[in-house]
Computed example of a mutant assay.
Amino acid sequence: MITSVNNDRVKQVVSYIEKSKARREDDVFVIEGMKMLREAPVLQVREVYVTERFLDGASEDDKEILWRYGAEPVSDEVMKKMAATQTPQGVLAVVRQYHYTEEEVIEGYNEADKEAAPLILVLENIQDPGNLGTMLRSGEGAGVTGIILSKGSADIYNPKVIRSTMGSIFRMPFIYVDDIPGMLDKLHKSGISTYAAHLKGKKNYDEFDYTKPTAFLIGNEGNGLTKETADAAGEYILIPMKGSVESMNAATSSAILTFEASRQRRS
């Protein structure tokens, strides 16, 4: 059992939690909890840690999974040091990062509906990890087939993002790109219509046909889309709001648009 918070492996896990550079260099990220471990593809899991307290109350099925991974027992103090949460669940794993190609994201693939047209989220400078994680989670629920992020967006492997995805990180293809307007040009050439959520939109979001290949553009929480990116979109679309509300939360906007596409595709 690892009982010292100064253990080298413990320090390494802490660096993965705290530093995106460490995660990039070792090509890993950290997940917490038995639910996330169950959802993780077996070949992606590099190492697992568990507390005796968790093992004492674990089901035989959970113990079998932990045994299969060769989970390393650690003290409660060590787990608290390694975990990103205030009240650790008692299970933590280091997982290998995913690497998708541009083609995989643009072409799209929906496991639930293999014939569905691509449905893509293009996210520019999304900063809040909770928002980004929620977008992955709600996007999966709406049938989003891929996500394109600007280099100025939050690190998708930030522990707060990972928690918010609730497992969608394992199933949602994504790429980071340097040039969002250039990527929009590629989408247009691939036959994908692009729609920018924008206050200058003249038509409401539910007036368009999203059964065809579609990409929605969502901008920064405070500033929205940059002018260059918004101007490169095929259409501006508006989410109408009542009262004195001037803008919509980025994750909420994403959910509204993608679930409208989902509704149309079910009809």
Rank of each mutant, 00 (worst) to 15 (best):
A84L: 07
G108R: 02
E103V: 10
L55A: 15
E77R: 07
E104D: 07
K227M: 12
G222T: 11
G108Y: 02
Y69Q: 06
Y98A: 06
K35I: 07
E39W: 00
T214L: 07
A142N: 00
R38T: 04
G139Q: 01
H99Y: 10
V28W: 14
G222A: 12
L55W: 06
A84V: 04
L121G: 13
I162N: 09
A251N: 14
I192P: 01
G222S: 13
G70K: 01
G70M: 09
Q97R: 13
E72M: 10
N7Y: 12
V177H: 15
D113L: 02
I162V: 12
N110L: 13
E221I: 09
I180V: 09
L121T: 11
D209N: 01
R9S: 14
L55R: 11
L149C: 06
I106E: 02
Y98H: 06
R68T: 05
T252Q: 15
V13A: 10
E103C: 06
A196G: 08
F174V: 15
H99K: 05
G243K: 14
A83E: 08
L225I: 11
K114H: 15
A233L: 05
I106Q: 03
E47S: 06
A142K: 00
V161G: 14
T3V: 03
I106H: 02
R38Y: 06
K189M: 01
I148V: 15
A232H: 07
E115L: 05
G182K: 09
T51W: 00
M1Q: 11
T226Q: 11
P159F: 12
K63C: 13
W67C: 08
M166F: 03
A233Y: 06
P240N: 15
E72S: 05
V78A: 15
R53N: 13
L123D: 04
S4F: 04
Y100D: 12
P88K: 03
I239P: 00
R163L: 13
K200P: 10
E246Y: 09
T258W: 01
D179T: 12
E103R: 08
D56M: 03
G139K: 01
I169C: 13
E64K: 15
E221V: 10
A22L: 05
V94I: 02
A250C: 07
E221R: 10
M36K: 03
V74K: 01
I175D: 03
H99M: 07
K19W: 13
K80H: 08
L257F: 04
M36N: 06
P181S: 14
M183L: 09
N249D: 04
G146P: 12
D209L: 02
T194H: 01
D185Q: 08
K81E: 11
E52K: 08
L37H: 01
Q86I: 08
R23Q: 14
N131K: 05
G33K: 03
